[in-house]
Structures are given as structure tokens and as C-alpha cells.
Design a protein around this nucleic acid. Structure first.
Lengths: 140, 140
DNA sequence: ACAGTAAACGCAAATTTGTTGCGTTTATAT
DNA sequence: ATATAAACGCAACAAATTTGCGTTTACTGT
């Protein structure tokens, strides 16, 4: 199934409307290897793209119904990635390159789970960021 | 030793000037159980406090010489805590309460260290945020 | 197919958080 | 005491995101 059709399916399942704009956003996220910011998404939209605000609102709606997760890596940009696990909890750590700023989901890396790291402190969500240098930026 | 005297010591050791403003900022951080934002610090300053910009610049200077570490927990606020370990790397995870927004350093909790989670991806710094509900906010 | 309705949209303006420029004050080494 | 670089205050700026509001559009139920 191509990503446009799959995007429709995702939106329908989430109970959101299948507008051309939202379908395209989901499809862009589907095709991306890493979480994207509003600006990156807007840049990939077809010529007569969407308003910034519309993209922000769509992403917020996606977050609310749990089809994306949101990461903040220290550069004060929200980035969004489709969330296979279907919850807002981050099931994997994220790698952030200090050179190019790209964020990568380390889906293969398992994390220890903390439920109550200190008496009375109940954990609902867990995020780990590994910051460093990615293979492309490490090139000599 | 009271926190004002200790603050002077910290600043001297870091090679920074002991101005009344910076001494007070360090002393506020010393007395705090958790990382503080510029706004929280400014609120705790004595009546004729400091300009926002001055606080930001002081915190930036502290970060540069490594006497504080900075956390960003997803609400787009920088928070700063004195750093016993003397490095900018975060040696412990942080707990973030979804109700009151307060951030706590989990100094007792050990984390597994990743050096190369994926071939070619070199980790320099590692941050873990545990988000949930703190004992005070969990009260019925 | 068609009308009604809530969701989605676009545009303008506002908000929030942090930064820069620049002239003045002050801690500290000499 | 004095020179000087660090620290400061004020005003203006900047980037990312949010809010308000009127218009358009996808979908539900005839």
C-alpha cells in the first residue's frame, strides 16, 4: 500500500477527517526516517501547501489521539514522528546529532523501565535522548 | 556554612566575579531541591532583584564554566541546577511532574550508558526524563 | 444526491521564551 | 587609588508556537 492510502487508513482509524492536507502530512511522516518539525513538514508539502498554523493544529490533533509522538531535543523545536506503538509513551530512545540537528528514533534499543524511581514518584512516560555525532557528520 | 558563603566559594572557584546578583542566584540554586527556570529564580530574588537578561546571562555563564546543568523537559523552559559532578553531562535522570511541572534530579538512580547505540552513532551526552506524577500532586 | 454541522482551514495578531546591542556600573588585580 | 574587563539594565529583536475569528469543507443522516 502506498503511503497516501495508508495515511487515509491511519486518519480514519483515529477518527480524524481525511482532508488533503492531513493526508499529506501523515504521508510525509510515514515516509520519513526521523521525527520532523513543522518547518520540515511544510517544506515537503506540495506547492500550494498548508498554512503553518494548520500544520501545527494538525500535529496537535495527531498528538491528542496518539498517532504521533513528540520529541524536544534541546533546540526548542517540536518534532513529530508516527507512533507505531499507538501510545504517547516513547518506547525507544532518540539520537540527536549535535552537528546537523537531526533526530533518529533508535527503535532497536531497549531501555530499562522505571516505574517508581523514588518513593511516591509514579512514572507514566519515559524519554531518553542520546546526543552526539551521527555517521554523516563524523566523516573527515 | 550558609548558602551565601558557599555561593561565594563556588563562584570564586569557577573564576567568576562575586557580584551580589550572582551570589544570590547561586545561593537560590543551592537552596533549591530541583532545577529552576529564569522566572522561578527571578521570583525568589530580593525585592530590588535583577533584570531578566542579567539572570539569563548569569545562568549562561554558569553553564559555560560547568557549575550548573541545564534541562529541557518539554515545556520549552530552560531549567538549571547546580552540578555537583562538575560536568555538563547529566549524570542522573530527571523526574518531571505533569501536574505541577516541577523537575527533580534523581541523583540516586543509575542509568545504563550507551556509547554507540547504532553503528557509527557516537554518544557524547545522555539525558533521561521520567514524566509522571509527584507525591504531592498524587494526594487525594 | 443534499443539507446541516462540526471539523479543518487561512490570515492576522498575540504570546512566550530567550537573545543582542550598547552604554553604564562595579568587582578585582595591580 | 586606578585601570579594566566583567557584570548590569534597558530597549529592541527574534524564533517558535498559539489564539481569535470568520470561512470553507468532509462527513453524517436523510
Amino acid at each position: 500500500m502506498n503511503s497516501l492510502n495508508y495515511a487515509v487508513k491511519i486518519l480514519k482509524k483515529a477518527g480524524l477527517r481525511c482532508t488533503p492536507g492531513r493526508i499529506e502530512i501523515v504521508s510525509i511522516l510515514l515516509d520519513s526516517e526521523h521525527p520532523l518539525s513543522q518547518e520540515e513538514i511544510t517544506a515537503e508539502l506540495s506547492r500550494n501547501g498548508l498554512d503553518r498554523v494548520t500544520v501545527y493544529r494538525a500535529l496537535e490533533a495527531f498528538l491528542k489521539v496518539g498517532i504521533v509522538h513528540r520529541v524536544e531535543t534541546g533546540d526548542r523545536l517540536w518534532r513529530y514522528a508516527l507512533c507505531a506503538c499507538g501510545s504517547r509513551k516513547h518506547c525507544h530512545p532518540h539520537f540527536v546529532c549535535r552537528e546537523c540537528g537531526r533526530v533518529e528514533c533508535l527503535t532497536g534499543v531497549k531501555l530499562p523501565t522505571f516505574t517508581e524511581p523514588k518513593p511516591g514518584y509514579k512514572v507514566e512516560e519515559q524519554e531518553t535522548y542520546l546526543k552526539g555525532i551521527c555517521p554523516e557528520c563524523a566523516e573527515p
